[in-house]
């Protein structure tokens, strides 16, 4: 079956959302759209069993002290990737607030947490204990690295499976 799904890439500024997808997706728009429009659209096709799922990736500008995600961009999404930078503790805090905001604006959606920059082990600010603690929220978590390509394809596969389950 051919399906199309909208998914969002969310996270604090500089967590590596765009780097994560850059090597793995088809794109026609430049990254300047992040600063102008607040979003950049990419495309990624994933095959899950007999389903060919085209993911329309809404790569949203990272949230920080001055910029907030536009809730309108979340409307109609089937799921999202929530990216955290392991080398910056504050991105974990931002991830919590973003996740709450998404639930408030569009309800519960399948999502996957990506603990990014996993290759920079010496710079980690988020401890293993904190990661273990995340289990209590029933979040699905994957460690990833844009530099090595670690778990990037897998992330799309896992999220797509979750979204197909939710249909």
């Amino acid at each position: 079956m051919l399906l199309q799904k909208k998914i969002c890439m969310l996270g604090a500024t500089g967590v590596g959302k765009t780097s994560l997808v850059r090597r793995f997706v088809q794109s026609i728009y430049s990254e300047k759209y992040h600063t102008t429009l607040g979003v950049k659209i990419d495309k990624k096709t994933v095959n899950i069993e007999e389903n060919e799922v085209t993911l329309l990736l809404w790569d949203l500008q990272g949230e920080d002290g001055t910029f907030k995600i536009r809730p309108a961009f979340l409307r109609g999404a089937s799921g999202y990737l929530l990216v955290i930078d392991l080398t910056r503790h504050e991105t974990l805090v931002t991830a919590f607030s973003i996740q709450k905001m998404v639930e408030r604006e569009v309800g519960k959606l399948p999502f996957l947490v990506l603990l990014n920059k996993n290759d920079l082990t010496e710079d980690f600010e988020i401890t293993d204990e904190e990661i273990v603690d995340l289990a209590q929220y029933d979040w699905k978590i994957l460690r990833s690295s844009a530099k090595d390509g670690e778990n990037v394809e897998e992330a799309f596969q896992v999220l797509t499976k979750e979204m197909l389950k939710a249909i």
Partner: peptide, 19 residues
Amino acid sequence: KDADMVSAMLTAIQDFVHD
């Protein structure tokens, strides 16, 4: 071939204007 991405971007522009 990129009509699906153009379509999404048009929607994003629409949302952007609204917001």
